Amino acid sequence: VGDQVLEIVPSNEEQIKNLLQLEAQEHLQLDFWKSPTTPGETAHVRVPFVNVQAVKVFLESQGIAYSIMIED
């Protein structure tokens, strides 16, 4: 199991704000291929294997929908 690319769908401005804060966490080494800008629009982010669980827990705790787009 390696890195994953998640497709994330924020449903409101609050969730977009939370994702932008997540993007700013440099220690997570997230690679946003497509940043969140509009509710209902997908964002794509590559998550290093060591941080996959932490990111998924965060998304679930914020009620942000996501799916695994690419499993490496």
Rank of each mutant, 00 (worst) to 15 (best):
V47K: 00
L20R: 10
K56L: 11
E13N: 10
L28E: 02
N12G: 04
L30N: 01
S61T: 12
S67Y: 08
P36N: 02
L59D: 00
L19S: 01
L28A: 03
K17I: 14
V55F: 14
E23L: 13
F49V: 10
L28H: 03
E14C: 05
V57W: 14
Q21V: 12
N18L: 15
Q21Y: 14
F49G: 15
S35V: 14
Q62W: 13
T42E: 04
M69N: 05
G63Y: 04
K34W: 06
V1R: 14
Y66L: 01
M69A: 06
S35F: 14
Q21P: 01
A54N: 07
P36S: 06
E41V: 12
V9H: 10
V57F: 13
P10M: 04
S35Q: 11
L30Q: 01
E23T: 15
Y66G: 00
E23G: 12
V5M: 10
Q15S: 02
K17M: 15
E60V: 05
N12Y: 02
V47G: 01
D3N: 13
S67H: 08
I64P: 00
Q15P: 00
Q21L: 13
S61W: 06
P10Q: 01
V50A: 15
Q53Y: 08
N51M: 09
G63C: 05
Q62Y: 15
T38Q: 10
Y66P: 01
L30R: 01
I70N: 13
P39H: 02
V50C: 07
K34V: 08
V47W: 01
R46L: 10
Q4G: 03
G2I: 07
V45M: 09
S61D: 09
L20M: 15
V57P: 01
Q29L: 13
K34A: 05
I68N: 04
H27Q: 08
L20V: 07
E14S: 10
E60L: 05
N51K: 07
G40M: 06
Q21S: 14
D3H: 14
E41W: 07
E14A: 11
V52T: 06
K17F: 10
D3Y: 11
E7Q: 13
T42I: 08
D31A: 07
G63R: 03
G63F: 05
L28P: 04
L6E: 00
Q25I: 11
Q15I: 02
E13C: 07
P39G: 04
N51R: 05
H44V: 15
P36C: 03
Q53C: 06
F58K: 02
L30K: 01
A24T: 12
V9N: 07
A54V: 13
F58T: 03
T38N: 09
E71K: 09
K17W: 10
S11M: 15
I68V: 14
Q15K: 02
D72H: 14
Q62S: 13
T38G: 07
W33Y: 15
D72S: 14
T38W: 09
I68M: 06
S67N: 13
E13M: 12
E14W: 15
V57C: 08
T37N: 07
W33I: 15
K56I: 14
N51C: 06
V52Y: 09
D72R: 05
I68G: 03
D72I: 11
T37L: 06
Q29G: 14
P10D: 01
V1G: 12
N51V: 09
E7P: 00
E71S: 13
N18A: 15
E41Y: 05
A65E: 15
L6W: 13
K34D: 05
N12I: 02
K17H: 10
H27N: 11
K56S: 04
H44I: 15
Q62N: 15
V9E: 05
E26D: 10
I64T: 01
F32G: 02
W33C: 07
S67D: 06
E60A: 07
Y66R: 00
E7H: 08
S67Q: 10
Q62D: 02
E14P: 03
A65D: 14
W33M: 14
P39A: 10
K17N: 09
W33L: 15
N18H: 14
A65F: 10
L6Y: 06
L59E: 00
K34C: 05
S67C: 06
V1I: 14
Q53D: 14
I16H: 03
K17Q: 13
V52M: 10
E71L: 13
Q25N: 11
P39E: 04
T37Q: 07
Q25D: 14
L59G: 00
I8R: 00
L20P: 01
N51G: 04
I16D: 01
E26P: 12
Q25L: 11
F49M: 11
L19D: 00
H27T: 07
A43W: 12
A24N: 10
H27P: 04
N18G: 14
V45H: 01
T37M: 04
E7G: 04
V5G: 03
D3F: 15
Q25E: 10
G2W: 10
P10K: 01
Y66W: 08
S61R: 09
E26S: 14
S11Q: 13
V47S: 01
E7V: 12
G40I: 02
L6N: 00
S61H: 11
L20N: 07
A24E: 11
Q53L: 12
P10C: 07
I16K: 02
E71D: 14
K34G: 05
A65H: 13
I64N: 00
N18Q: 15
V5S: 06
V52S: 06
L59K: 00
W33E: 09
Q53G: 10
Y66C: 01
A43T: 12
F58P: 00
I8D: 01
I68K: 03
H27Y: 11
K34M: 05
Q29Y: 08
V55Q: 00
A65W: 08
A24Y: 09
Q4W: 14
E7N: 08
Q53V: 11
E26T: 15
P36E: 02
P36T: 04
R46W: 08
L59F: 03
G2T: 08
K17T: 08
D3I: 13
E14H: 07
L19N: 00
L6A: 01
L6G: 00
V55C: 02
D3W: 13
S11C: 08
P48K: 05
E71T: 11
T42A: 12
I64S: 00
A43S: 10
E23D: 07
